[in-house]
Simulated assay, not measured.
Amino acid sequence: MSSAKQVVVIGAGIIGASIAWHLTKAGARVTVVSESGAGGVATPNSFAWINASWGNPEVYFRLRTRAMAEWKRLAKDVPGLPLAWCGGLCFDLPADRLEAYAAEHSSWGYGIERVGRERAGEIEPNLVELPDFAVYVPEEGVAEPVTTAKALLADAERLGARAMTGTVERLKFANGRVSGVVVAGETIDTDEVVVAAGTGTPAIAATAGIKLPLDTPPGLIVHSRPYRKLLNGLVHAEKLHMRQTAEGRIIAGSDFAGGDPGENPAATARELFTVTKAALRDADGLEFDFHTVGYRPIPVDGFPIISRAGGVGGLYITVMHSGITLAAAVGLFATREILEGERDALLTPYGLERFAQ
Rank of each mutant, 00 (worst) to 15 (best):
A17V: 11
R225F: 11
L286Q: 10
T268S: 15
R97K: 06
R308C: 01
A26S: 05
I112F: 12
G13F: 01
W108R: 13
G331Q: 05
R228V: 12
V59Q: 14
D344V: 03
A100M: 12
T335S: 10
A252S: 04
I251F: 05
H22R: 15
L286V: 07
E353V: 09
R177T: 14
R62T: 12
G109F: 00
D96H: 10
A206Y: 02
R177H: 13
A208N: 12
I324D: 02
V183S: 07
F173Y: 06
G160A: 11
H321N: 03
M68Q: 15
D77H: 09
S36I: 01
R162T: 05
K277H: 11
G248M: 03
L63M: 15
G176K: 06
E192T: 06
D191T: 01
A26Q: 07
I305C: 06
V142W: 06
V59T: 13
V178E: 10
G176V: 12
L346A: 05
K211M: 02
F288E: 10
M320A: 09
A38N: 03
F303W: 08
P138K: 04
T245A: 09
W71T: 07
F61M: 04
M1E: 06
R296T: 03
A143K: 08
R177S: 14
R64C: 12
A197Q: 05
A356W: 07
K239V: 12
A100C: 04
Y136D: 05
P131W: 08
H291P: 11
V181H: 14
C86V: 15
V30F: 04
T187P: 09
R243G: 03
V9K: 04
W71H: 08
A156P: 05
R29P: 00
V300S: 09
V59G: 09
G198L: 02
G141K: 07
V146P: 00
R354N: 03
L346Q: 05
V178I: 11
E139L: 05
H105Y: 15
Q6N: 11
G294I: 02
P218C: 04
T268C: 13
S46N: 10
L240K: 07
V168H: 08
G176L: 08
H236C: 05
L130C: 13
C90Y: 12
G219H: 08
K25I: 02
